[in-house]
């Protein structure tokens, strides 16, 4: 743990709370296993002593801004998390003046689980080249480690070469395990529909069956709803209790959107996302 870095986060948090700039600071604290970390909400200046930051801080805290729209809050964000802030600004879900962003530079977080602080960087971090949050009010810099530039879509390309039947069999098996706990949705900063289609009764899209067909409809629709919107924090895959590789679906769609529209979600708060843009010259790709 970098104590100087943590000290900087704590003093800024303490200042913001004492000064009354924010009602609450959303950061990280040590988890109950004594090894990993968990989200922490500091409301009183004394509570900032619980704030920490290290390479187990995998959670994308931006999702919590959706619960705290009524009061100004401060939030600790990594570079990838800052893309979620841009996404929510872009989609008018949060107001910039209601959030004080404590940005932390980062060269990757670990693949952790309960009672295991991890041996290696998360796969998404291994090829990531972002080191500085795209948007912040206060920047905390830590010592960074060089990461080799790599091809981020190797696993996607591998699946793409397989015949459709094999791909279908792979995903059917994966979705077959889904228990529809909706942790993937609940953790996602981009999943904020007040009434999710999967729980809608009228019209009835899916129904309550926890069964292969319904699971598949749920997962595929969700993935498409995040096409061009997923910012790649991979929290959905991290939280899945039955280890469905959801990140692969999201990155496949991210890759498609990148190739078709040269667009990546969350890089700027202003750039219009492809699926929220209408251009007259765009055709559907068939004879009119």
């Amino acid at each position: 743990m970098d104590s100087e870095l943590i000290q900087q986060i704590r003093s800024e948090a303490s200042y913001l709370l004492k000064d009354g700039t924010v009602k609450c600071v959303i950061g990280y604290e040590r988890a109950s296993d004594g090894l990993t970390s968990r989200p922490f909400f500091a409301y009183e200046p004394a509570a900032v002593e619980r704030l920490i930051f290290d390479e187990t801080c995998t959670h994308n805290l931006v999702r919590y801004l959706l619960d705290k729209k009524r009061e100004k809050v401060a939030i600790v964000v990594k570079p990838c998390d800052s893309r979620a802030i841009n996404l929510l600004l872009n989609e008018a879900q949060i107001k910039r003046h209601m959030v004080f962003i404590i940005g932390v530079t980062c060269s990757g977080v670990m693949e952790t689980s309960c009672n295991d602080k991890g041996q290696a960087l998360q796969a998404r971090c291994q090829t990531c080249q972002m080191t500085k949050p795209l948007v912040y009010d206060f920047l905390v810099e830590q010592k960074l480690v060089e990461r080799p530039e790599g091809e981020p879509y190797l696993d996607i390309q591998e699946i793409e070469t397989k015949p459709i039947a094999a791909r279908r069999a792979f995903w059917s098996e994966q979705f077959g395990r889904c228990i529809r706990c909706y942790a993937c949705r609940q953790v996602c900063p981009g999943c904020y529909c007040p009434d999710c289609f999967v729980e809608q009764l009228d019209p009835l899209w899916v129904g309550i069956r926890i069964a292969p067909k319904e699971n598949e409809l749920w997962q595929i629709t969700r993935a498409f709803h995040l096409a061009g919107r997923c910012i790649g924090c991979n929290e959905c895959e991290r939280v899945c209790p039955v280890d469905i590789p959801l990140g692969r679906l999201n990155r496949k769609l991210e890759k498609e959107v990148k190739e078709l529209f040269t667009f990546q979600a969350g890089l700027s708060p202003e750039e219009q996302p492809p699926f929220a843009t209408f251009k007259k010259e765009e055709t559907l790709g068939f004879e009119e």
Partner: peptide
Amino acid sequence: RLADRCLHCNICAYV
């Protein structure tokens, strides 16, 4: 306060 960080997924109940 405890619920601040709760995501309200169904994992705990389903496992």
